[in-house]
Amino acid sequence: MSTPAIEIRDLEKRFIVKQGLFGTPRHVRAVDGVTLSIPTGATLGIVGESGCGKSTLARLILGLLPASAGSVLVEGQDLSRLDRRARARLIQPVFQDPFSSLNPRRSIGDIVAMPLVAQGVAGRETRSRVAEMLEQVGISPDMASRYPAQLSGGQRQRIAIARALVLRPRILLCDEPTSALDVSVQSQILNLLADLRRSLNLTTIFISHNLAVVEHIADTVAVMYLGRIVEEAQAQALFATPRHPYTRALLASVLTPEPGLGVPDVGLGDVLPDPSNIPPGCRFHPRCPVAIARCSLQTPPRVDGAECHLLSA
């Protein structure tokens, strides 16, 4: 296999949280040794519950936050060593909330042109590329003079996608791109992303807490728990035969539309994960329904893409 489109090596982020004037500062390990790589044209889904570090990971990959350790390489180039223009040509984001990701004071045309302007592209070329890009995301170029407040949530997200793709980046990083949208609009946006991914040969990172969405769009899936990837596998394999107990719990927690079933019991107990106080050994053991004595003592090694003692035994 050739070099992967994007390679994430031992990425780590620690925050220092001060507690009052005399309190001892605590370290919060939001992202803890994440290693991932994605071949060109593939889509990686990252799933996990709220607060597991998904969005911090997204910000680290984009370089919006400086990493405490580790590196992100796109086509062999370390993103943190590139200047802002070169980095922008390699990786672009689509954010969750299309209401806060578009500047309300700028027109649609200006918003989509913004990355080109930042690259120093001349006026006339900018206009034609913006019009072309708007058409590709299903927005009439006539709407370029409108403002975000005049658009629906789905249209706004199309604009956000147009802005991300107008530079023809190699990597598209989508951080929960559909979770702020109506269910009826979600599938439109997902299909648009799938189409664009094929036609532009994009490599995509797709972060979501919605398992159904990830199953629909991702080739491989990484499951994140307390800042760490606990299982990584082909999408079909992961959903058919989840190996890590946390993955199984996540899959069990999906609500079904069938009446009478109620809220599923996932057997995780009431303890909530706290990234400022990560348990020793396997970080999942306090909530794990099948934990054994060894789990609280040793960090589990990764076996076939999953980090669990029971698999290696």
Binding site: L62, A88, Q119
Partner: peptide, 20 residues
């Protein structure tokens, strides 16, 4: 807000982000 993050990720310089 995310639009500032988007402008940063798009390669805009800091003065440009502040002004526009």
């Amino acid at each position: 807000l995310d639009y500032v993050a988007a402008a940063w990720a798009a390669g805009s310089s800091t003065p440009r982000i502040l002004i526009s």
